[in-house]
């Protein structure tokens, strides 16, 4: 019996290797303007995206 189903690739640690480029959108420039929600922002680091 399957007890555990992992639904994503755990990549937060790997994200640092090519992260921090600063090209992604400031979160308040999307819909919010009053609430800081960051995890829904898209990564715009081409070298990181292409390495996937």
């Amino acid at each position: 019996m399957e007890h555990i189903k992992t639904i994503n690739k755990a990549n937060l640690k790997e994200s640092c290797a090519k992260g921090g480029c600063g090209e992604c959108q400031a979160s308040c420039q999307s819909a919010c303007k009053t609430s800081c929600t960051v995890a829904n922002q898209e990564c715009e680091n081409q070298s990181r995206i292409q390495s996937k």
Binding site: I7, N8, K9, N11, L12, K13, S15, C16, K18, G19, G20, C24, A26, S27, C28, S30, A31, C32, S35, C36, T37, V38, A39, N40, Q41, E42, C43, N45, R48, I49, K52
Partner: peptide, 23 residues
């Protein structure tokens, strides 16, 4: 719905997540 958007695979890097909006 904006506040339920979440990308569990290819979201922002951890470095971005340390400080949020950048204001």
């Amino acid at each position: 719905f904006f506040h339920f958007m979440i990308d569990l695979d290819q979201g922002p890097c951890a470095i971005k997540r340390l400080r949020g909006c950048g204001c």
